[in-house]
Write a protein that binds this DNA or RNA. Sequence first.
DNA 1: ATGAAAGCGCTAACAA
DNA 2: TTGTTAGCGCTTTCAT
Lengths: 343, 343
Amino acid sequence: MTPKITIYEIAKAAGVGIGTVSRVLNNHPNVTPETRAKVKEVVMRMHYQPHTYAQRLARRHSQTISAIIPFFTNYFFVEILRGVQEEITSLGYDLMLFGVNNISQVESKFALSLQRGRVDGILFFSMKLPDRIVPRLREAGIPVVLIDSYYPKLDSISVANIDGAYDATNYLINLGYQRIGMINALLMSAPAAERLQGYRRALESNGIRYAADLVKTGVNTKQDGFNREAGYEAMMEFIKMGAEMPEAFFVSSDIQALGAIAALLENGFRVPEDVSMVGFDDIELASHVGLTTMRQPMYQMGQMAVERLAARLSDPGLEVIHKTFLPELVVRGTCRRAKVSAG
Amino acid sequence: MTPKITIYEIAKAAGVGIGTVSRVLNNHPNVTPETRAKVKEVVMRMHYQPHTYAQRLARRHSQTISAIIPFFTNYFFVEILRGVQEEITSLGYDLMLFGVNNISQVESKFALSLQRGRVDGILFFSMKLPDRIVPRLREAGIPVVLIDSYYPKLDSISVANIDGAYDATNYLINLGYQRIGMINALLMSAPAAERLQGYRRALESNGIRYAADLVKTGVNTKQDGFNREAGYEAMMEFIKMGAEMPEAFFVSSDIQALGAIAALLENGFRVPEDVSMVGFDDIELASHVGLTTMRQPMYQMGQMAVERLAARLSDPGLEVIHKTFLPELVVRGTCRRAKVSAG
DNA sequence: ATGAAAGCGCTAACAA
DNA sequence: TTGTTAGCGCTTTCAT
């Protein structure tokens, strides 16, 4: 192990003071080209590396952003995280990753992020912000941006769930379907609740009566019901309806749609010949199986969240914004026009 | 924003010296129960939070581990990362995530991780370690463990690719196939090269001649060829062989297998009725589509890597180990016994 | 058992 | 332009 080399060693070797070394390291203007060159040479030669934590202590900021994320069984998050990671890196920040497996862990991860000096900003994914946290945020003066989540006084980046669900359902209606089922996740999840709303609105604005028994949720509550099994279970319930079963479905996430399709195939239904389906998310999987779905621009959402956080970091006075992306219909192979047997 | 509260404030409020405060904070034995109680009370009351970076500077270690990971378009990594994240958290370390998109970024991320004091250890995923890095690792005295990668003098956790590929191929042979194709990734990737070896060995130890034209790689080189398109392309090549096309395939990753299956279906082949296929990895996707595959225990690999790093952190003198997991065949729905038309 | 004091390696204000 | 010095907030010796 090489003896630790600090700015003192550099200063001595270059025959200057540590202040000067620090200045060239930080690109301060007040250094003659010659001294600068000399110091730089020594820095290179001795392979000097600044001590990050000493810098952070002295500078009073951490150059790091933490992401608190419901841990990624869920590809939706992975995709967002990619955007986050790349943007953070390109801005010269560090990314500290905190995974939470359930709501009870949220507070402890927040506490970690709130330690003085530890992170400059926090990115918070998808979960409902614990109420007790918000005042502490203000107190600590740490900016936060929410992704796929909403809180009045905090910046947020999310998706227009209502509109997306509306469009998806509307697409099915335009294909000629009247009886359209919905497979939803748990209503305690805001996106799920909103998507239900959009579905309902689309129905009603087309003069179709909303029927509660045409909306089902699986019993598996993992990931708030956004999981394959739940989709499978819900579809099994529909299949039990027999002749009453809808011929078209809007499903609140691709992953559930996959489970639903599996249930269908196992029971001798073909997609889209016998039933049409549109999902939500457009995870990579969706293109693999040719699922028609509503695309959320996940990567971009991640990028933009970081951008926003950075902006707020340099100007804390910024007004709160709530950016929402409009999901976009991606037509692939799971829908077909309704048979003309009058609705 | 609350005035920063430091151990000085605590000390004053509790009527003790800062040394004592530090001692109770760090659970040093030499404190009377009474003083300890008093200090603790003040700490609670004033919501004291230690300044992480000051601690790290004073303690000379960072309590953080960095993971350098070819960024996760690839679910294989996500799964490993889950194991890594949970284990790191449970050990009380922080996880600093560095994504690299191509080999040229590896060095710069390493440089970041090598900054004195910045991280206590490094987890390095899947890519070939740049040669210039290794000496610098020694120099910095930072322990590293490799995941899904190998270097003689460094701890590594990986998968027995040769054996896995052997078993997969053997399974197909036992099903009665003689002409078995392989869809591989780029040979510059060590896992790909090893899997080819295993495939070849299985053939030869069963008296089947290895034929180079039965091994194909797609042209898409993203992720070293471990991607869906490459699998699709390779299968298209096989399909062009017409009657010469094998009826069974070993594919070097699940994601490629998915592409290959798509190509097959598009061209009127059914799986497994017309062609059998076994993949490699067992990513979540595999179970969704019922792919028979070789399972790599990804989550566990991540966990174990962290465990090992932690062990080495507390005892740097540990001997180098190379832990290898044996992939396990998961039989699902993409293989069937060969038709008895004599080979 | 406890307080005082000396670092940890850096930045930034202050003189010169 | 440059060197010197005083912090940043903590840990850890060293006296007491």
